[in-house]
Design a protein around this nucleic acid. Sequence first.
DNA 1: CCAGTTACTTGAACTATGTGCAAGCCCTTT
DNA 2: AAAGGGCTTGCACATAGTTCAAGTAACTGG
Lengths: 227, 227
Amino acid sequence: MPRDTLSRDQIVRAAVELLDAEGLEGLNMRALGKRLDSAATAVYWHVKNKDNLVLLAADHVWGELTLPELNPADWRAAAATMATDLYQMFTRHPWLVQAFAAHVLYGEGKSRHDDHSLAVYEAAGFTADQADQAAAAVFTYALGNAAGAAATASLNRKLNRYGAAAEQQLQDAMAEAKAIAVHYPRLRARLETPAAIEYAASPDDTFEFGLEALLDGLERQLAPQPL
Amino acid sequence: MPRDTLSRDQIVRAAVELLDAEGLEGLNMRALGKRLDSAATAVYWHVKNKDNLVLLAADHVWGELTLPELNPADWRAAAATMATDLYQMFTRHPWLVQAFAAHVLYGEGKSRHDDHSLAVYEAAGFTADQADQAAAAVFTYALGNAAGAAATASLNRKLNRYGAAAEQQLQDAMAEAKAIAVHYPRLRARLETPAAIEYAASPDDTFEFGLEALLDGLERQLAPQPL
DNA sequence: CCAGTTACTTGAACTATGTGCAAGCCCTTT
DNA sequence: AAAGGGCTTGCACATAGTTCAAGTAACTGG
C-alpha cells in the first residue's frame, strides 16, 4: 500500500472546493492544508505558489465547458451557447470572477454615471426596462474591453519589469499575466430596500437581451459578405 | 500657520498616484505613509481601512468622467462617448480594473475555448480579423455579465452572512459589496513571439467594432417603437 | 535484505502587511 | 495658563505566504 501522498490534481480540486465554498478570501494555504490533512507547506512541493494554485484552479474549472459543434448555418446558436455556458460557468464559480474582483465599485461616481446612462437611453425612447438593460450591456461591454486592455498593459508591465531578463522568465510572465475586471449594475437603486436581496434573481434575461443585440450587430456586419 | 495635517482627499490622491504608478500590489499602508511623510497608521484616522481606501480611490477616479449631453436624436453618439470614456478611464487606471483582476486566466482551457470560438466565427464566414473581434466581443460580454451576476451573488452572500444583524451592518454591506472581473483574449496566440509585447498597441479598434455591433443591435431593438 | 537514493512531508521560522492601541504632540478655547 | 480635542506616532500583534533544514517513507540496485 503506497504511502498516502498528495497529488497536484487533488490539491487543485481541494482548492476549487475551498474557493467555491468560501470564496477567494477563504483560500489560504493553511486552510487548504487542513482540508488536505497535511501541513500547509506540503502543497509547495506540488505547486509553485498560491497565485499559481489559483491559476490552476481556474484552468481546471474551464475544463467544465463543453464546446458546441461547428454549424455555419447557425453560428448564432453556437455563439449563444458558448456565451451562455461561459456565463453559467462563472456563475457556478463566482471566485473565478472574484479572483479579479475582490473589491467594490459602488460609489457616488458610479451611481452618477449609471443614472446618466439610463437617462440617455430613456431619452432615446427605450422603455425603462430596455434602457436599463441597454445601459447594463454597454457598460459591461466597455468595462470588459477596458479590462482586456488593462490586462494587456499589466502583462506588458511584467514583461518590461523583467526587462532583459532570461527568456525563461519572460515565458513565465507571459504564461502568467493578464486579467480583467468588470462590474456593472442594473440594480443600482433601492439600496435601502430590503428587496435588494432579490436582485440576484433574474440577471439572466439581461444577459440574453444584450447577447442577442450583440449578435444582431455582429450578424449585420456579416451580411455584406457572400456565403 | 496651521499644523501640517493630513486630509482625506490628500490621502486618496496619494493612493491613486501610488496605484497608478505601482498597481494594486504597490499600494500598502506603509508605502502610502511614506509618500505622505507620515506614519502608516496615521491614515487610519481618516480612512476606515485599506479596502475602504481603494473604494475611495476608485470613486475618486470615477469623477474624471464628464457626461455627454442628452440628445435623443443621436443617442448613439452619447452612448458611444460614454462607453469610450469609460474605456479610457479604465485604461488610464488599470488598477481600477486590476482591483478585481489580480490574477490571470490564461491556461489551456481558456485557449481551447478561444480557438473554438474563433473557429465558430470563421466557419460562419467572418474574416479572420472579424472573427477575432467578434469572438472577443462576445466573450467580453459574457464575462462582463457573469461578473455582474457574481458580484450580485457576492453581495447577497454578504447580506446573508450578516443575516439578522443590525440594519446598520446591512447598509454597510450594501454600500460595500459588488464587483466583477473579466478577462478576454484576442491575442491568445503567439505567446512565444516576442512581438507579443506589441499587443497592447491596438485593442481600440476591437473596442469600437464591438461597441458598434452592440449599438446596432440595440438600435434594432429600438426601431419597432414610435418616437 | 541492506544501503543508499529519491520522493514527499513536516514544523519552525522569516517576512510582509493590515491594523489596534496607548501615549503624546500641537493647536484652540476659555 | 489650564484643559481638551484633533491628529500623529511607535509599538505590537495577528495573519498569511513562503523558505528551509530535517525527517520519514517508499523504492532501487546490489
